[in-house]
Design a protein around this nucleic acid. Sequence first.
DNA 1: CAGTATCCGATGCGATACTG
DNA 2: CAGTATCGCATCGGATACTG
Lengths: 235, 235
Amino acid sequence: MRTETEYGQFCPVAKAAEIVTTRWTPLILREMICGSARFNEIHRGVPLMSRALLSKRLKELQASGVIARDGAAGSPASAYRLTPSGEALQPIILALGLWGRQWVESALDGPDWDAGVLMWDMRRRIDTSALPAGRTVMQFDYHDAPDELRRWWLVIDDDAVDLCQSDPGHEIDLYVAASVPVMAGVWIGKRSLPAALDDEEIVLVGDAGLRRSIRRWLKLSLLADAAERTHAPAG
Amino acid sequence: MRTETEYGQFCPVAKAAEIVTTRWTPLILREMICGSARFNEIHRGVPLMSRALLSKRLKELQASGVIARDGAAGSPASAYRLTPSGEALQPIILALGLWGRQWVESALDGPDWDAGVLMWDMRRRIDTSALPAGRTVMQFDYHDAPDELRRWWLVIDDDAVDLCQSDPGHEIDLYVAASVPVMAGVWIGKRSLPAALDDEEIVLVGDAGLRRSIRRWLKLSLLADAAERTHAPAG
DNA sequence: CAGTATCCGATGCGATACTG
DNA sequence: CAGTATCGCATCGGATACTG
């Protein structure tokens, strides 16, 4: 192979591809566009990536001028942020996602549907400021998932959101029942949340306030947001 | 590693990235967007890629539904074409190139500048229909290139365009003199061709008709075209 | 022309363990 | 928390040779 991952062409498409399309990099950018800034925070979005490789990619992105750090390396305050050049990649990553949603079959019904990754994604997008102060506990039930991935709990305590796979033992404020494809379809903006609720494909049981405010405290994915901005939601 | 180049996430960005951002794939798509359809034609645009790998990538792209073939495999008439899903990638590849042109330093002054690749690119974009019938011979001289990459000849005979690195012995109809960065800057649309001619950074000597019609017979790269469409050219 | 088959070396990357 | 260092192998991909 040529040195590393270079293409030996001056064409700007090739130069851009060398930076943006190395393995995992589009997903790291997606995470940062979604607001992740700390190392572990970014890693949560790409849990299958080794930390060593993430570290390497972050260095490469810094060398390319796409991201930069605020504090000193290693310092507790250190955070990564997108530079202007990195911000300029946002519409490209977004377009890639919209393309994937529209054209990749398995984006909705492949065997990749994993309730765990979905819950991790959702966990990161709970808007705690739209929830009551103190503790809120939600239980998710995916009737179509294998037993070990079927039930999940979110324990929200003021700012902290904890995801559990075993019953934390607290009283449940809200039960959420759905199939994985339905919840995922809503999550990526392929279907609107109110429509799925109306059709009872997602069923909420419990605190009336939480049920009513779900559109505020459950912030959907980057793509669902984009969909609302580009074309009016279906329902 | 996980199976092949998959990410194990359902996020549409990840699914799209699995298809679009594997090594060489963005460049193959660029070639096809530029109009290449035959195997060897595509390969000319990515000459550093092995034919075996190109073959493999083309199969993968077919499996993903991004491209399809017209004739039977191997038949002389066989050609690849973008499907609707592939066409939908055009704005993304274009945006990637525009980003690269704007933000990647070395896109214009790195050590990657190679007059050979530039000439190969240009060769593919000569519009023979805008040239006189019969034979036209042009000589390019890059005064800043190393000796072995300094002089190039294009021999155009009706439809056929041949690129030579040694004097083909015919009478020269047009001499083109420039530096590699200047010609490349024009080629990728960073600078307009008329402006570079006005400033004598590109100098044409020879047939007056060829000199006048250069904007028609030398079709610039995908990106230069896009630039003309999105914002008025500088000159 | 338009590929395929085989070989094999380089390296990308995961796993594990360690550091400040 | 935020990484780094080392090891080892799977696989990616280049080179070469062959086919319809």
